[in-house]
Design a protein around this nucleic acid. Sequence first.
DNA 1: CTGAAAGCGCTTACAG
DNA 2: CTGAAAGCGCTTACAG
Lengths: 325, 325
Amino acid sequence: MKKFTMADIAEMSGVGKSTISRYFNGGYVKEATRERIQAVIRECGYMPNSFARLNARESNIIGVVVPTLNSKITGRVITSIDRYLREQGYETLIKSSDHQIALELDNIRRLISLNVGGILLSSISITDQHRELIANSPIPVVVMAQEFDAGISVVDDDYQAGFEMGKYVGKSHPEHVVWLGITDTDRAVGIVRRQGVLDGLKSCGVSDIRLFSGDYSYESGQKMAKEALESGPVTAMICATDRLAFGAYHTLAQFGKRIPDDVSVAGFGGYDESELLSPELTTLKFDSYALGQLSAETILRLIRNEPVPVKQVIGFQLIPGKSVK
Amino acid sequence: MKKFTMADIAEMSGVGKSTISRYFNGGYVKEATRERIQAVIRECGYMPNSFARLNARESNIIGVVVPTLNSKITGRVITSIDRYLREQGYETLIKSSDHQIALELDNIRRLISLNVGGILLSSISITDQHRELIANSPIPVVVMAQEFDAGISVVDDDYQAGFEMGKYVGKSHPEHVVWLGITDTDRAVGIVRRQGVLDGLKSCGVSDIRLFSGDYSYESGQKMAKEALESGPVTAMICATDRLAFGAYHTLAQFGKRIPDDVSVAGFGGYDESELLSPELTTLKFDSYALGQLSAETILRLIRNEPVPVKQVIGFQLIPGKSVK
DNA sequence: CTGAAAGCGCTTACAG
DNA sequence: CTGAAAGCGCTTACAG
């Protein structure tokens, strides 16, 4: 495959390269010329190099920063972003922060200096540095899955979801409930979702609630479950994610506890696998595809200076399994 | 955040921009000058724009083409690639083909015309067009997870893995075995893995083996399992992936079949969830992190003109669950 | 060891 | 409707 440049195509079509550029960017090109160019392009399979648009007034690249490439939910979100942007003629540039906040900040800086058209940010944790960076960013930013009072966000309804789940579990009147959660630095999951759960439980009169926190790994779920069981009696475990619930299942089996007879378990995520556990995991599914697509739509609207809501809230669905009494 | 360019940094450091460029690309810079530049860079958090290296002799961007962003295994592979490349000072540019072969070809063309340093390709299916594209590519390509006789590949040992699994299941002397597979266009899984399984089974004297094929989805697993059960007696199901096995579990439950008493089930993938199924799924785990890292190492070696094996085979581990009699 | 100049593949006023 | 020219942020011979 020979590498064609715009100059090559221009020469082959017998026009100037400005015309080829206009052809691709929707400028004036006479119909006859347009057809001639099209023929040449088809012939050589030419596509312009998006990254060479160094002085274009706007880039057609959207940067996406995610906390990890290794999560089911992230997979759903970026799949849906990528699909939508591709349809709209944009390129997706994905950067993983690999769970490191310093890398996340670097990624944002990098995207800004790359002069991408817009940034979709799924943050590990929003710090003051994020606020400063975003406030001074010459490029629009949409924050995903995390409340962001100083800008535009598209979020899951973590509080309400937590509340529903708390109420659902609370209705069985468990005496001793534990929350297997995430550190506070992740506001959406660590704080908001947890608060929803607590309030939901309290609305049913549950008062003995013990809190644990760790990271997002399967192992962390196992570990927290163990700590919880060793810290006193437990009749229900509400886990911040399905993955943590998987870990809890593992530990409960080791401790010889039956689900839900001895201990009820619930998670958040709605992974396909959850319905295969025995008993089926009671979980709650956010519409991650919608979150991805709406975020992508929103960033494009910002780029086009169209009005956008400062906050959009995505729906969820509680999936009753058989793991709660 | 102001956007600094190399010219800004040059001015602020009181040197020419060639010197800044050399600073970043390991050229000669006097120690004193180097320190002065470093101070300025630290001050402004400047990073050069990798995509503006239009006429660099080599790019520090590695393109990665994956069939989907929505798979556990892909997640593991790209996580490990991204980590390794970052450590080595390279950028990862991920492009998803979203299960469309035409898009995959486009992605490869695109990366070539972007003039990335190298391409890591996880292909849906290697066609003649791929061969032509790769043969004429001015840029090195490493094919991942798929045999590639016309170039460099890093692959799972699909045949041997299939064989081991076939033997493992075969040892229980199941009378009627079905293979829930993937279309032939995916050679690695659709053909090689299947052949390994068949040979493994035959080595144990199993002869009644019926073959089914579909796509990689959970639903496809359900559907194939249903077809299999309706097509005649079944005492063992070997599934091309864990996800398909999850679908089979679902269908078997619907049909009132017990695992493994009525039907043995096995998969490939080694997902964490597999050990939580009841009974635990017998599966086989490829070392996807190793595959990612070795592929990344290999592409860098190719770029540096260091010798590389034409084919590297990654190990696997059979994880006996309780789903095989 | 360093800088001025030309060039990478593209876009954008501007003149025609 | 179109092209020559200047410019985007960078790299690379080349001369000093």
